[in-house]
Amino acid sequence: MEIPIPGLPDLPDLKIPSLPDLKIPRLPKVAIDWRKALTAAGVVIAVIAAAFIGWTLFENYTYDRDVTAFGSHVAAAEADLAQVSEKVSAHMRSRPANPSLAEADAPVREFAAIAEYGGAVTAYHRQVISADAVPDAYLEAQSAYVRALDHLNRAFSLWSSAAAAYDMQAYAAVEDNLARADQEWREYVTAIGDYNQRLRVAEEVGEVPPA
């Protein structure tokens, strides 16, 4: 006996399809062509090998290029510092024996000009060398050289201050600035020694091809 449900419309008779009517897709049969498979594998291996060799060559190239650039920048700095050194040495040799006041003041003005020049040289090369992208093995050497230039730059700056104090006849301040500059020079020498040592270590590390 069917009990009618109130509000439910009369539904037409539903027809459930029989399971045998469903179509199940089937995977096509793969026909393995061993020649093509070997070719594909060879291509993959070739790509990986090419990538590896290319990357290694590129790393080698980058390493050499960066070290060469760093070396050329240090060489340029050394060449300019040699010129500064020449002027300083000539200045120190040419001190007048028994000068008048004007003759005594002239070397101080030259001293100030040399200090200005030395300061500009060290600031310039510090900027160049600190911007160098060097291999990791050379980072400490680069850092030591930049530190040396920093000490030298401060020493020249103190020389400029000493010359300015001389112009104001504040001789005690001159002596104070020179003493501090002497200390910066000593620290510069230490930093250069540190650089030489770290460069040697970097070059020994560099003998092993970079990864």
């Binding site: 070290v67 060469t68 700095a77 028994n98 020179l178 002497d182 020079w185 020694g193 650089y195 070059e203």
Partner: peptide, 23 residues
Amino acid sequence: LRYIPAPAEYRISPARLPAAGGA
């Protein structure tokens, strides 16, 4: 009477150059 400032330290220390192209 005559005073000319004279630093005690003023000599540049030559730095070794990196070998061209790395090691």
